[in-house]
Design a protein around this nucleic acid. Sequence first.
DNA 1: AAATCAGTTCACCACTTGGCAAACCAAATC
DNA 2: GATTTGGTTTGCCAAGTGGTGAACTGATTT
Lengths: 114, 114
Amino acid sequence: MENFDPALDGAFHALADPTRRAVLRQLLAGPKPVKQLAEPFAMGLPAFLKHLRVLEETGLIATEKTGRIRTCRIEPERLLQAESWLAEQRAFWGAGADRLAAYVENHLAEEPNP
Amino acid sequence: MENFDPALDGAFHALADPTRRAVLRQLLAGPKPVKQLAEPFAMGLPAFLKHLRVLEETGLIATEKTGRIRTCRIEPERLLQAESWLAEQRAFWGAGADRLAAYVENHLAEEPNP
DNA sequence: AAATCAGTTCACCACTTGGCAAACCAAATC
DNA sequence: GATTTGGTTTGCCAAGTGGTGAACTGATTT
């Protein structure tokens, strides 16, 4: 029932950028320092740091600075929250019988694009 | 490996707005005309139509106009695509053993002795 | 035919986003 | 102690977003 959940807003907004999704992908393999994370992207560090800050403020990653390097690690809770919202919606449109019938009628006759 | 998928960009961007998420919730119960969809929200129709267009261009909903009323219905494919991306990431960070250990250490008060 | 109703379009506005360059700070390194 | 290295801050800019009000179109009702 939490339609106005700011955490969801932030999580989906953060995920809407390919750079940020790629950062999350990199962090799946384990924590990494900022510069190593930034390497694959064709942009300056300031721009990249903005993306990191978005991810951190949203709670999708956490960072810690030791010495002069800042290490980033993934923070799975928000990711799980976003996924569970989507799963909840899916469960819902699976629930209505007529809704399901309409879906079948409209989509099963054609070839869906994967 | 499709990090630069514009469809995902659009889907997550569309989901980042509470109004649009609420519209999707309403449509889970079945197709609805525009005005009925717009009723719960404290905004004019032009602003609401912009949200609907975002949802439609992203492929999250489909609309059809008969007479003077436009009926909207949900289009589950994009939703599934977004959810499966998240599920994929979750599967990944479940894969790394040290990553999993760090997660347990940081978030669970239990002892993960395998 | 006139009035209403459901959308639509248009012009405009405040605010955010995503990028840049340049200067700056602190920690390693030479 | 001078220099590189990793990160940060500060302005700045073009483009996009989310909203408004007013005018308009076309279908329905009276």
